[in-house]
């Protein structure tokens, strides 16, 4: 495990170094997060080693219009994902207030989409999510607010590397992290930003622009 961590740390460092050096030539790239493993492939008769990156797996959730949203909706699209619940009294208002800023910047563009998962699988039915989206100021279908079974939602949270849990001692009954997770066109995690921190949100806006430059 330690070894694996070392390998990952050095890969991250190498990528960071790459980022710094490439910064000078104005072609910065974002790191790729999560577990990775080498795979051997045969290309043109030669065996080469490629890297298999962690990707967001297939999913299917009901959105605020009671339409099923799947991973297919995000094929070849950059999107930002987060986890919240509508009557969350703690970090969610600030997190979604900040995500709304990014949404307003990109809502008319086909380049960036938004996906908020409710972790309150009991209360946040589609009509509740619909009202929330409307009151927040979301005016088109580029930002989905989705609900699903507890296993599916909490399971996908793990895939986004975001901690979520039902906890009766937490404000509102659920405990979770306020990360805004940046996903690229190949469904790889390219950044995670604390949605309650203004500097982190500014960093997200900057790095999102970098990601959009990628082919």
């Amino acid at each position: 495990m330690v070894n694996l961590f070392h390998i990952r740390a050095s890969v991250v460092l190498a990528l960071a170094a790459l980022g710094i050096s490439s910064c000078q030539s104005n072609t910065a790239t974002l790191p790729i997060y999560g577990q990775r493993e080498p795979v051997e492939k045969i290309v043109d008769g030669k065996t080469i080693t490629d890297t298999l990156y962690h990707t967001i797996p297939a999913f299917k959730f009901l959105n605020q219009d009671s339409i099923y949203i799947t991973d297919k909706n995000y094929d070849n699209k950059v999107y930002i994902a987060n986890f919240f619940f509508t009557h969350c009294p703690s970090i969610c208002p600030t997190m979604n207030r900040n995500l709304l800023k990014v949404y307003e910047q990109y809502k008319d563009s086909d380049q960036v989409y938004f996906l908020s998962h409710s972790i309150d699988f009991k209360y946040d039915q589609p009509h509740v999510l619909k009202e929330y989206a409307h009151k927040l100021g979301v005016s088109n279908d580029h930002w989905n607010f989705v609900t699903g079974s507890k296993a599916d939602i909490y399971g996908i949270a793990n895939q986004y590397l975001v901690y979520t849990a039902e906890d009766k001692n937490a404000p509102g009954g659920y405990d979770h992290q306020g990360y805004l997770v940046l996903i690229d066109k190949q469904k790889r995690i390219r950044g995670a930003y604390d949605g309650t921190n203004d500097e982190q949100v500014a960093k997200l806006q900057k790095e999102l622009a970098i990601l959009l430059q990628e082919k």
Binding site: P93, R97, L100, Y132, H134, L136, G137
Partner: peptide, 10 residues
């Protein structure tokens, strides 16, 4: 909100 600006219609 930090400046008492509220949030949408929420």
């Amino acid at each position: 909100g930090e400046k008492g600006e509220g949030l949408g219609l929420l």
